[in-house]
């Protein structure tokens, strides 16, 4: 979670260059209809605020106050309520991030299986520290808490989207190269060890990419 409740959470100052021009700060009729559909799923409009903020973040890339206000107005809820929600949850970006955000898990299982090695490799490769963005605006990196894929440690997530499992330095290099050329990693299905034995591999015939649970690497760094 981003800010402890007792602190007064304020959004960081937005770099003027990142500000969204007023004429772009609108939802299309179609997008408005989607937001209304989200609203209809809940007995109270407020229930849809999280989905609404997600929707806005996918469109605008991050959530400066004027975008939060736009969502609140569209859903017909108080701005303060939407603002409170946007600042509570870590996945909502309060600032413009790199085009690709690499969230490397350094928690618990990943820590003891090389998560920090992977993070440090990215730091060196991209020349930035966790929380920073490269000058070309392409990459941000962060060390994050458990992503629920501990059996495939070390692992990372790209911009709140696909997971990349069983990381190695080579795999990271290939990932960065492919992202530089605009290619996101595919959704990867992880083969259960029992499926491997009983079904000879992954059970999903529609999974383009498949990973297996592997013996984790030895961790060099644990912080």
């Amino acid at each position: 979670m981003s800010g402890h409740g007792a602190e007064i959470v304020t959004l960081p100052k937005i770099n003027p260059a990142d500000a969204i021009p007023a004429d772009k700060l609108v939802f299309t009729a179609e997008e408005k209809a989607q937001l209304q559909e989200y609203k209809s799923r809940y007995p109270e409009a407020e229930g849809a605020v999280m989905r609404g903020l997600w929707f806005a973040q996918e469109k605008f890339g991050f959530l400066p106050p004027e975008v939060i206000r736009l969502v609140a107005d569209e859903l017909g809820i108080e701005y303060a309520r939407a603002y409170g929600v946007a600042t509570f949850y870590t996945q909502y970006y309060k600032q413009k991030m790199g085009k690709y955000v690499l969230d490397v898990c350094t928690c618990f299982s990943c820590q003891v299986c090389g998560g920090y090695d992977m993070l440090h490799h990215l730091e060196e490769k991209l020349g930035i520290k966790p929380g920073e963005t490269t000058d070309d605006g392409l990459f941000s990196i962060q060390g994050v808490e458990c992503l629920g894929a501990c059996g495939s440690a070390p692992m990372l997530q790209v911009t709140n989207g696909p997971y990349v499992f069983n990381l190695t330095e080579d795999k990271l290099d290939a990932l960065v190269d492919s992202l530089r050329s605009g290619k996101m990693p595919p959704f990867t299905s992880v083969t259960l060890p029992q499926d491997e034995e009983e079904m000879g591999g992954n059970r999903r015939s529609d999974a383009a990419a498949v990973a297996t649970y592997q013996t984790p690497p030895v961790a060099g760094a644990v912080e």
Partner: peptide
Amino acid sequence: GISGHVNRPGVYE
């Protein structure tokens, strides 16, 4: 869900 320093981590039923 078994993770960490084992040869074959993973989810087992």
